[in-house]
Design a binder for these strands. Structure first.
Lengths: 236, 236
DNA sequence: GTCTATAGTCGGATAGAC
DNA sequence: GTCTATCCGACTATAGAC
């Protein structure tokens, strides 16, 4: 993907804003599901209910639209994630927290991530795009990594490190944090497989509760935090 | 470049098998990385060093080749996974195993999976295809699910259930087993991110050892098995 | 069985009317 | 800014020579 550019930043009238917005929404919907090559400009324009030429006009090219979608994802996800991340960062800088305090913050963050990642219908669209970019990164990977994954990772590393009594850049800290993240991601990525296996129709609040409860229990065990009684209350 | 007809007999029978084999290899390589739509028949034929028309001749269509690649994956993965799975199934049917025995079998299986999934260069190709099929399933999903994921899942469920004292179809069993699987998968899927974060060049034996050790430690903690000795290397 | 040539379609991108 | 008409290259698939 060649670096084409910032032409979509050109100032256009208010009507143009609508077209841009709708194209980005269509891209978010379709690129994630069908991949960049799997969706044509005609289908994009059709879904966005704008003219075919609008893609070139506003984003320079199909690739420009794709990257604009990536930027949109970052902006959108940050909107609901920033409060949680800022809170953690603020507390981390106030004073050195105890392991228990870090753990409590971690649980809170994971809870929020789980709910959004699995519960929100939007998440399906953009996580798919992130996963595709992980398989075969394009220019959009940089946008997604710097704006989205890196901040989350950093926060997780500091909390997990705080619990383990290790630095946030310590290899063990990072590996354990990734493993924890994996337990969350799997329920998104293997959604089709899991629903089939468990005869679930969708992730509703019942199912989300069961998943959250399992994840928290595991995280507690992994980080050797004093465990509450093993939950059989997870059966929803 | 056309093959010079030095030995007319060589051009006939076995040559077809060679073309099929090479096309499947090319498909395995390219479909996983670039998606179905991301790779053209021309590129496939070129990479396979066969004629363009060979795809239609041997597989009916590009889609036929894609499904043949899926079947190939199942066959190939089963070849190295079957021994491990059969062994577990045999032992499970012999007599009711203790939790410790189940745990030992589980560690062994996870170890084998980790090594192959993260260490083998081939795995990168086919896991990518499986992940893409999870995002947006096509007809190939059925092939991959029935032949590959289901057998692995079943085995995991029985072992995890055996350790927890629950049935293999119990919801808690399945959720915990999935969470465990997630810890493994994440190191494959987020490979790019992780390498960047840890300054790793690749997954070499050093790095694999670190990952394996973390995963086993976590599984032990999750399933409340006594951590007698760190490392308990089952297989290299 | 293998390969070339090509048919028929669809892709991204553009020119120019309004 | 918006939209229609269109260019042209790339795509899958096929027909038929060898």
């Amino acid at each position: 993907m060649a670096a084409l550019g910032l032409r979509y930043n050109l100032v256009k009238g208010p009507a143009g804003e609508r077209a841009k917005k709708r194209l980005i929404e269509a891209g978010l919907e379709l690129f994630g599901r069908y991949s960049f090559d799997g969706v044509s400009t005609r289908v994009l324009a059709d879904r966005a209910d704008v003219n075919l030429a609008a893609i070139q006009y506003y984003f320079g090219s199909k690739e420009g639209l794709y990257q604009a979608v990536a930027s949109h994802i970052v902006k959108k996800v940050k909107r609901w994630l920033r409060p949680a991340l800022s809170e953690v960062e603020r507390k981390l800088e106030e004073d050195s927290l105890t392991g228990e305090q870090c753990f409590s913050l971690l649980c809170n963050l994971l809870d929020r991530l789980t709910t959004k990642l699995l519960g929100s219908p939007d998440s399906k669209k953009w996580v798919a795009m992130v996963v595709r970019e992980q398989i075969e990164p394009t220019d959009a990977f940089e946008i997604l990594y710097e704006g989205l994954m890196k901040p989350i990772d950093l926060c997780l590393f500091r909390l997990v490190g705080g619990i383990l009594g290790l630095g946030p850049q310590d290899q063990e800290t990072k590996l354990r944090a990734y493993a924890i993240k994996g337990q969350l991601i799997i329920f998104h990525v293997s959604r089709a497989e899991l629903k089939r296996s468990l005869n679930w129709q969708a992730y509703r609040s019942e199912e989300l509760k069961a998943i959250r409860s399992i994840i928290l229990d595991h995280v507690r065990a992994i980080l050797r935090m004093p465990s509450i009684e093993r939950g059989h209350d997870t059966i929803g």
